[in-house]
């Protein structure tokens, strides 16, 4: 086995990678999310090294002038081997990042790693800068520049927010299991995005909507949870829906959702209100992956079919998962992003 992969497979990587690698409920030395946190901005846009894991997660649905659909992902993860920052190379903070561009017939992926403490990667709140190597997300959070490069693609995007931050769960305290695992979770789903994609065929100008998720925690998954299916949907009428389903070993699942009205008011829904049911699966990377779903939120009369723009949007990264743009049809039409982890 490849040495580095072997090393990294041991990383207590990220929550989305199913409940492996000792991501259980013990969080010794790490802070644990509590309800009733008062968020403090811009400080909370920065890193929280006393929590085990954290991410800055941007997805975007893009179109060219000719109407061709593209999906884009920029993600920076922080995974701490021990709480707090250390000096230089002895830092226990491990950073890694994923970038991807997806269109109807192709999916480009790149991945980066770094440790904290040396300046190769990190996040500062003021001025806001999240970076790893030459990848960066920088600006004042309401307007951001976002860049990433891979061996066969690159992009350079500008994002401008035209709505408020949305806090999921109980004012940003997002419960993830019946036994109480939770994270801090807020989003900025109102970005307009424009820029250029540099793909093997040449540069392409694109515009669209982007969605940024911020989440940090120390024990996000329960022992009996094997993976999750996460949806961020933007409807044509301006409303948005975030919903996820955490799959459990007994076949049941734990769900949670946030309805975001076009004016920026949001409503959180507890376990059971939101439902997502696989309709069709495809085999990609040797796994059965459901790429067509029925998603319902009866409280908002939502009953839609969600289908992948490109079935093979497999993130062939050190910790692999599926992530790609989707089209929405049914009671509401629109676009969005789908992430599925823990499919073995």
């Amino acid at each position: 086995m490849n040495g580095k992969i072997a090393v990294l497979a041991l990383l207590p990587t990220a929550v989305f990678a199913q409940g492996f690698a000792g991501l259980g409920t013990d969080a010794e030395g790490f802070a644990i999310p509590r309800p009733d946190r008062v968020f403090d901005f811009p400080t909370d846009h920065g890193a929280h090294p006393n929590y085990r894991i954290e991410w800055w997660y941007v997805t975007a649905n893009l179109s060219t002038k000719a109407g061709e659909d593209y999906g884009l992902q920029w993600t920076l993860f922080r995974s701490a081997l021990a709480p707090d920052e250390g000096d230089g190379w002895t830092s226990p903070q491990v950073w890694f990042a994923h970038a991807a561009v997806t269109r109807a017939d192709a999916h480009y992926v790149a991945e980066r790693f770094s440790r904290g403490g040396i300046g190769q990667a990190g996040v500062t709140a003021e001025p806001f800068l999240a970076w790893i190597d030459d990848w960066q997300l920088t600006g004042d959070f309401d307007s951001l520049n976002m860049r990433a490069t891979g061996p066969d693609f690159a992009y350079d995007m500008d994002l401008v927010a035209n709505g408020p931050l949305i806090f999921h769960g109980e004012d940003g305290y997002s419960v993830k299991s019946a036994s109480g695992q939770a994270s801090y979770y807020y989003s900025q789903p109102f970005y307009d995005i424009a820029g250029t994609l540099d793909l093997p065929g040449g540069e392409i100008a694109v515009t669209g909507q982007a969605w940024l998720d911020r989440e940090w925690s120390s024990q996000p998954l329960a022992d009996d949870q094997t993976g999750w299916d996460w949806f961020s949907l933007s409807f044509d009428d301006g409303a948005k829906l975030m919903g996820f389903r955490l799959r459990q070993t007994d076949g049941t699942s734990y769900t949670s959702a946030t309805w975001i009205a076009a004016d920026g008011t949001s409503t959180a829904y507890a376990d059971g209100a939101f439902a997502a049911t696989p309709l069709n699966s495809v085999t990609t990377a040797g796994r059965d992956i459901p790429t067509r779903w029925r998603v319902t939120l009866p409280a908002r009369n939502v009953d839609v079919t969600v289908a992948a723009v490109f079935d093979d949007a497999w993130m062939d990264t050190t910790v692999p998962y599926w992530e790609g743009p989707v089209r929405v049809e049914g009671s509401h039409a629109g676009r969005g992003y789908l992430e599925m982890t823990g499919y073995e």
Binding site: M1, N2, G3, K4, I5, A6, V7, L8, L10, L11, L81, A82, P92, V94, F96, F113, S114, R115
Partner: peptide, 23 residues
């Protein structure tokens, strides 16, 4: 180990190894 090219080094840090200890 985070930036070294994948197959660098004969160290096959396998199941019983642990990055936390290495770092």
């Amino acid at each position: 180990p985070l930036t070294a090219p994948g197959d660098l080094g004969p160290v096959q840090i396998g199941e019983d190894a642990d990055l936390q200890a290495f770092l």
